[in-house]
């Protein structure tokens, strides 16, 4: 999520592919597509990782289409109930949906970028409370318990967490566990 040059997460988020449509012919670069063609022809569509797509888009060599994790279908599903969308399956295991979204947002112009930001923020807010609730629930269970009675819906939600949310989950669980431990410890035992 960070903008740090050395942030592994940021690198992983940039590794997602988006579909680009080239506006001009580019000679001798056909191998990028993995095909046998020598040149990239104008109007050809190629899936490129974001890190190379930036520069092509900014230099006006190519256009891009909104990638499928942010398609209208996903947007509708998020609007209906953000908690039932499995973000992780949209961007692959350990994927960073928010990180990907952030980068796509920066490639867009004003109006669509604002819309994208709104979707990201709304989704994040809608899901955050559930993330933290579940983290605290699992912190309270202790090492022996876990799973079982918590229900299928909760399990589905946890499996659908994106990388950023997983991190938050771990943070909340850790701190809830620590605080609980302290409340339960007793001064008398120490001496």
């Amino acid at each position: 999520m960070d903008d740090d040059y050395y942030s592994i997460e940021s690198i992983l988020a940039e590794n997602q592919k988006i579909q680009c449509t080239f506006k001009v012919d580019i000679p001798d670069m056909g191998h990028l597509d993995g095909g046998n063609e020598r040149d990239i022809k104008a109007q050809s569509k190629i899936q490129l990782p974001l890190w190379i797509a930036y520069i092509l888009i900014y230099s006006d060599y190519a256009d891009f289409t909104i990638p499928s994790p942010f398609s209208a279908r996903v947007k509708n599903a998020l609007n209906a109930e953000a908690k039932s969308v499995r973000l992780s399956s949209l961007v692959g295991a350990g994927g960073l949906w928010y990180g990907f979204g952030k980068i796509v947002m920066r490639l867009l112009d004003d109006a669509p970028a604002n819309e994208m930001s709104e979707i990201l923020t709304k989704t994040f807010r809608d899901r955050l409370v559930e993330v933290i609730d579940q983290a605290q629930h699992f912190a309270a269970l202790g090492p022996a318990g876990g799973g079982g009675q918590s229900g299928d819906q909760a399990l589905m939600f946890r499996e659908g967490l994106d990388g950023t949310e997983r991190e938050l989950f771990a943070l909340a669980q850790e701190s809830a566990k620590r605080t609980k431990q302290w409340y339960e410890s007793s001064e008398k035992g120490r001496r």
Partner: peptide, 13 residues
Amino acid sequence: PFFVRAMGVLTHI
């Protein structure tokens, strides 16, 4: 820990 992180994420998006 998680409030700070969550606010960090929100800053980005």
